[in-house]
Nucleic acid binder design. Structure first.
Ligand code: FES
Ligand code: FES
Lengths: 136, 136
DNA sequence: CTAAATGATACTAAGATAGTATCAATTGAA
DNA sequence: TTCAATTGATACTATCTTAGTATCATTTAG
């Protein structure tokens, strides 16, 4: 069961690194190189991952020399759910094999109904965990 | 987020069909053909799916003419978690990118710790839903 | 200027997914 | 006894997804 994909995983490692750098050294702008040096993640791949966080408004990016990435909001405001959604889309356990198309059975489906209730709880839990506490 | 895979989805459809056949017509043994006729699932693929349920002890199988599949336990005893586990393995949201190998960070990892707690709740919920009620 | 950084895009190898195709073994019944 | 209906077991395949690499363009501090 791949709940957290590699994208999300790497993003989390990067964000936790950035949160620690901010707290411990008051380092606001971090480069991909900084992260790779510490976390041993694949360079170019990680760049794309961070770019996505920037597009989605979680990070801000700065080009050019002395550029890099910084938080666009305080780490406490970024939830685990937020990060997962960036790479995996909305958290939705209620997929059936007709997903995408509208399942004709969708409204009456009991499986869906039950899982939907569980899903709501899951979202709430994941929304309640933030990068600040995870980096602690 | 593919929580329920196609295998699991098809298996659920088949099991719900069997549960209804049992309740409404007291039909205990059902063939792949019966299910395909009603649920429009791919024949050979479905066979393999049901074979797996038989191997795992959820269904009993009977070869030869008048053969087919029957429940190996009452539908009420088969949980959603059971079916998911057959095709997707243990329900475990706590995968990190070092999964398989033992993550050196595993014991201190806060992400893992948090998700582990959520996972326990999820398993409990899914274990509390059974085929009988879903087929109702 | 230029080196250091991100932005954007194209490409690729390996693996997973969702099947199909076949034949073997079993069994109830004509 | 023969045969048709059924599951058991494997091998194969096309498509999609994953996890990257490679490259060049753009920006900017010094
Ligand atoms: S069968 Fe489509 S939502 Fe349940
Ligand atoms: S980093 Fe491996 S378990 Fe969290």
């Amino acid at each position: 069961m791949r709940f957290i994909t590699r994208d999300t995983d790497y993003a989390l490692r990067a964000l936790l690194f950035m949160a620690r750098a901010l707290r411990h050294e008051n380092k606001k702008i971090v480069t991909v190189e900084d992260i790779v040096a510490e976390e041993k993640l694949p360079r170019v791949f990680l760049r794309r991952i961070l770019q996505k966080l920037a597009v989605k408004g979680v990070l801000s990016s700065y080009k050019g020399k002395a550029g890099g990435f910084s938080f666009a909001m305080v780490p406490k405001k970024i939830s685990l759910a937020d990060v997962i959604i960036v790479y995996q889309g909305e958290i939705d356990l209620t997929n059936c094999f007709l997903q995408g198309k509208i399942c004709p059975n969708r409204t009456r489906c009991k499986v869906r109904k039950k899982i939907k209730a569980i899903n709501a709880k899951l979202i709430k839990e994941l929304g309640g965990i933030n990068i600040e506490e995870l980096s602690g």
